[in-house]
């Protein structure tokens, strides 16, 4: 049950990776500008303002469809979390990160 709820929440929240966020932003800008320009051109050349309305609204609907859901192309490069810290009783000063090394300004801190 919990697993099912987690899955449902993941789909609702639709979190995507950093590359995906950049892609979603670019897609929004490109698609909306393109559909606006096309809608004005189509309406002007056919002298029918209703075509402008419908092409514009159609392009917007397509943008929502392509950008809003958690599509797989938004999660191509997920950034993994660091492993959980497990503190050892013997070395209190050093934190064991399970083999992961963290460097800050060339100096190892973890």
């Amino acid at each position: 049950m919990d697993a099912l709820l987690d899955q449902a929440r993941d789909i609702w929240e639709g979190e995507i990776d950093f590359r995906g966020q950049s892609l979603a932003d670019n897609l929004t800008t490109f698609l909306l500008i393109a559909s606006s320009v096309i809608s004005v051109l189509v309406g002007f050349t056919t002298q029918d303002i209703y075509k402008t309305l419908y092409v514009g609204l159609g392009g917007t609907a397509l943008t929502f469809l392509l950008v809003v859901p958690q599509w797989p192309y938004f999660n191509q490069k997920p950034e993994p979390w660091l492993p959980a810290r497990v503190q050892k009783a013997s070395a209190a000063s050093r934190v064991d990160l399970g083999g992961v090394q963290i460097e800050v300004d060339g100096k190892r801190v973890g």
Binding site: I16, S22, A24, S36, V40, F44, G56
Partner: peptide, 30 residues
């Protein structure tokens, strides 16, 4: 753009700007 709600807000927000630009283009085109 990290979650669904933020993406909806962003797309809708930019849509309003685009719709305004389209309306302005139509008004000037006459």
């Amino acid at each position: 753009m990290h979650s669904t709600v933020v993406r909806v807000q962003n797309v809708f927000g930019f849509f309003t700007s685009a719709a305004f630009a389209v309306a302005a283009a139509i008004a000037v085109s006459v």
